[in-house]
């Protein structure tokens, strides 16, 4: 299975597997990765799965969806490489992707 690495604000890295087609949010929650809440269950309605995508992967993850864009504009500490990871679906092309979690989701 493809792997994704989440790096916490404090530097701790968590590498977990995610099935193709599964969102990175789901993979984080299922594996109890700290720093990703996913309170709305993947509906792109809460902005509690905010991550920063590492530069090498930014092109590969594709663009933000329109709803995601709006939701992110209300999230705290957004940057140019911010995404809501419930909207990033795992694929072989993303095997090895690295994302960072913000200081807090609320």
């Amino acid at each position: 299975m493809p792997k994704v690495t989440f790096i916490e604000h404090n530097g701790t890295a968590h590498t977990v597997e995610a099935a193709n087609g599964e969102s990175l949010m789901r993979a984080a929650v299922d594996n109890n990765v700290p720093g990703i809440d996913g309170d709305c269950g993947g509906e792109c309605a809460c902005a509690t799965c905010h991550v920063y995508v590492e530069a090498d992967w930014w092109e590969k993850v594709g663009g933000r969806t329109e709803t995601e864009e709006t939701m992110l504009s209300f999230a705290a500490a957004t940057k140019d490489n911010s995404r809501l990871c419930c909207q990033i679906m795992m694929s072989d092309a993303l095997d090895g992707i690295v994302v960072h979690t913000p200081d807090g989701q609320h």
């Binding site: 792109c44 902005a47 709803t67 709006t70 939701m71 504009s73 209300f74 999230a75």
Partner: peptide, 10 residues
């Protein structure tokens, strides 16, 4: 209107 909801929470 999810954006309003997000703003409201702030």
């Amino acid at each position: 209107r999810a954006p309003d909801h997000m703003a409201a929470r702030r």
